[in-house]
Design a protein around this nucleic acid. Structure first.
Lengths: 344, 344
DNA sequence: TAACACTCGGAAAGCGCTCTCCAACCCCGA
DNA sequence: TCGGGGTTGGAGAGCGCTTTCCGAGTGTTA
């Protein structure tokens, strides 16, 4: 059945008794077509069961109705389990959900691309320049990624989710990570905590360093010039390890800010293991307000990250840039909010 | 910059001093080309920075190097929040991760498509027949979905994740949901539970009805002919509501099987609210072994669902079918396993 | 040396569509 | 009745690539 030829514009034209050009005009809703013919053509389309071939159309219009979602990750290789973790993390799904909420309405599809090596990166940019997709949304994982620059230099419409580590003239949406961390600091202070520590993410990732900076700055403003810190890598287990280390270093710790909910989960486990009560002995504030925050026990007080909205805005930004490539480069920063639950 | 014409095969040919045909042969690694010319051509490719245009290539080869991931969902409309929930659920991410683990190695990209209305469904099948993608992986949400049939009738290579509700000659991978539920029953019984209930999913979804049937059958084999059951819709909140209802109906309940982890989370909350201890008063077994299971407290004893493996197998199956459309229709059923944690 | 079988590279015909020209036609005023 | 302006539809040239078909060149055998 795959072999039976599908009807083409030519076939429709023959059935309708007009030329290919006319059918094309009718289908694309271009005026200058006699209403009578109009009807005849649509009738022929119905009778033949014609569906335009998007590929052929794209080849000439240079528009594909596709946006690439690029997950850039220099470290992992082909079947690195890291990618599995990444996809299982709600982060990925929330981004996709946010993107689709605006793309779907426009009938635009999302093509998922993972780039590991520089080779793949180069090919991707080449494909995009060739019009494989109309633009790209980039989730840049590595601390410093050449991809954003490659894209702008290639003239490919692209929007980053999360600010680039080094300045690149590219559109992006981001969260005011520093403000969020400051919120966490204020909350901990307002709860009367005195010995406050932090479990941070990798220092070279912008989102992470912003949280560190914001937290430290706010505490410093209240006389805490020194914040004991342990570094994790955003996984649950690293949070558990970091918490143990932090407790060993500061046994009388009474408050901690953990840079994401997943690590907070691990921290909670370490705290339980050390027989400390949360929040009475140690107050814990997470970050992201992911589904893990609600599932945790006690439920996590955390910083809400409107990821879906951010992704949706990224999609809108991209669409606008595709429409007008000369548009001024812009960025949209979202404000986080504290969500108070039981852990602090 | 978008305007500057990219080098085409023609340009490379001119630089190399050969014909387009020869360049094409070299690039596609077809023999019959003098090694000398071979080198000259590659050199020209390098000098011009040529990247083949996939669109143009696909148009003639009828191969796109793209697989569609179709999320079929008849109920929700354009910005139905349901889709947001769906994407945020780890289920989606795990599937994507599993698929990508095999597709990525082949350099195949995944194009995400959501189909809500029958109109979209029709257009999608048309596009697929036109070679928009080489095949489709289908995540069929509604109880009875016309899509699988439409795809097979259209001769589109497709693989379902989760068996079709009504028999359709289509490849699929699925989990032995009934066996999994039976495992849960055995575990509860082995823990000496006597008054065992169940919180099920919607009865018209195959995965759900299989779990109900498997659980009831196993309990019946051990003399429990009647299993008090409440129905949820796989969300956390519905699990909480169902648990309350179940407790009201069977106050001395001492064991419960909840058809997925998310609902189990809700059930745990309801149990806590009613001051019952888990697992001493009521033992709880979930289903899926999602990340929620570990985050819960107490950590959930649950049924492991090798979703990543299943998705990977679906991808392999699809690739095989694309290669040989005449291949016999096949299905792969995975066996679940009990993961014992603290809740039962 | 002639006849034959091969190997290799080029010309050109598409894949299915859009869109620019251009010819044909209509209506109007002079 | 004729010429000018405005519509409308068709012919055909691509978009960038693959692939068939052929002719030219090479080496081998009688």
């Amino acid at each position: 059945m795959r072999t039976e030829r599908l009807p083409t514009l030519e076939d429709v034209a023959r059935v309708a008794g007009v030329s290919r050009a006319t059918v094309s005009r009718v289908i694309n809703g271009i005026r200058n077509v006699d209403p009578q013919l109009h009807e005849v053509v649509w009738d022929a389309v119905g009778r033949t069961g014609y569906v335009p071939n998007r590929l052929a159309r794209s080849l000439v219009t240079r528009r594909t109705g596709t946006v690439a979602l690029v997950v850039s990750d220099s470290e992992s290789h082909d079947d690195d389990p890291f990618m599995g973790r990444f996809f299982a993390d709600p982060y990925f799904g929330r981004v996709v959900g946010g993107l689709m909420s605006v793309l779907r309405a426009q009938g635009i599809q999302l093509a998922l691309q993972i780039v590991g090596s520089d080779d793949v990166r180069k090919r991707l940019v080449g494909d995009l320049r060739n019009g494989q997709a109309d633009g790209a949304i980039v989730l840049s994982l590595p601390p410093v990624d050449p991809l954003p620059r490659m894209l702008t230099e290639g003239g490919v419409p692209a929007v980053l989710i999360g600010r680039p580590a080094e300045p690149v003239p590219i559109d992006y949406v981001d969260l005011a990570n520093d403000t969020g961390a400051a919120l966490a600091a204020q909350h901990l202070l307002s709860r009367g905590r005195q010995r406050i520590g932090m479990i941070s993410g990798p220092a070279d990732v912008p989102a992470s360093s912003d949280r560190i900076a914001g937290f430290r700055r706010e505490l410093a403003r209240h006389g805490h010039g020194w914040v004991p810190t342990e570094t994790g890598n955003f996984t649950r287990d690293s949070g558990e390890t970091a918490m143990r280390a932090l407790l060993a270093a500061v046994p009388d710790l009474d408050g901690v800010f953990v840079a994401n909910d997943l690590m907070a989960l691990g921290a909670l486990a370490a705290l339980r293991e050390s027989a400390r009560q949360v929040p009475s002995d140690v107050a814990v504030v997470g970050f992201d307000d992911s589904s893990a925050a609600v599932a945790a026990s006690p439920a996590l007080t955390t910083i809400r990250h409107p990821l879906e909205d951010m992704a949706a805005e990224a999609a809108r930004l991209l669409l606008a840039r595709i429409e007008d490539p000369a548009m001024r480069v812009s960025s949209v920063i979202y404000e986080p909010a504290l969500v108070e639950r039981d852990s602090a």
